[in-house]
Amino acid sequence: EILIQQLFNGLTIGSVYSLVALGLTLVYGILHIPNFAHGALYMLGGYITLSMMTLYGVNYWMAMFVSIIVVGLLGVLLERFVFRLLREAPPLHDKIAAIGILLFLEAFAQFVWGADFHTMTSPYGQVVNILGLTFTLQRLLIIVSAIAVMVLLYL
């Protein structure tokens, strides 16, 4: 029983990693630039969602929508004003720029939100028992969402 529970936990973490990897693959496939700042953009989205929920009282889905818009606009700005200008430059320059953006975003997040651990509440914290195993609804949604995104991108 514990083994199956841990396998499910691993599947949940793997689903999160697969969603990040799908985003990185899409960016690389379109721009042909390994965007090392990709994870920092996800982090920024998480902090924006957290801020919208805790500081402004915005509900979960609206906070995520605002975060998607803000990070999407930031991605467009980065492409227009950094990566597009480096298209004709030697290949190393775009990698250096991506690392610079990564370091800037990490320092910015630490300056704005600090280095302390933060949590946000989820409306999907309900516990589900299936065949004696305990799962949270959020973990089930993560796995189903990851599979759905992979299938849709494949199609």
Rank of each mutant, 00 (worst) to 15 (best):
N9T: 10
G10E: 09
G10Q: 11
G14K: 06
A21Q: 02
L22S: 06
L22R: 03
G23V: 06
T25G: 03
L26T: 05
L26M: 14
Y28H: 14
G29R: 15
H38P: 00
H38T: 10
L41Y: 11
L41V: 15
Y42C: 03
L44A: 05
G45T: 11
G45D: 08
Y47T: 02
L50W: 15
M52D: 04
T54N: 08
G57N: 07
V58Q: 04
V58T: 13
F65Y: 13
S67L: 07
S67T: 03
I69P: 02
I69D: 07
I69S: 09
G72P: 13
L78F: 15
E79I: 05
F81W: 14
R84G: 04
L86F: 13
L92K: 04
I96K: 06
A98T: 12
A98C: 09
I99L: 12
L103D: 00
A107V: 10
F108C: 07
A109S: 15
Q110P: 01
V112H: 15
A115N: 13
V127D: 02
V128W: 13
G132L: 04
L133Q: 15
T134A: 00
T134G: 00
L137N: 06
I147C: 13
I147W: 13
I147R: 03
A148P: 05
V149W: 08
V149H: 09
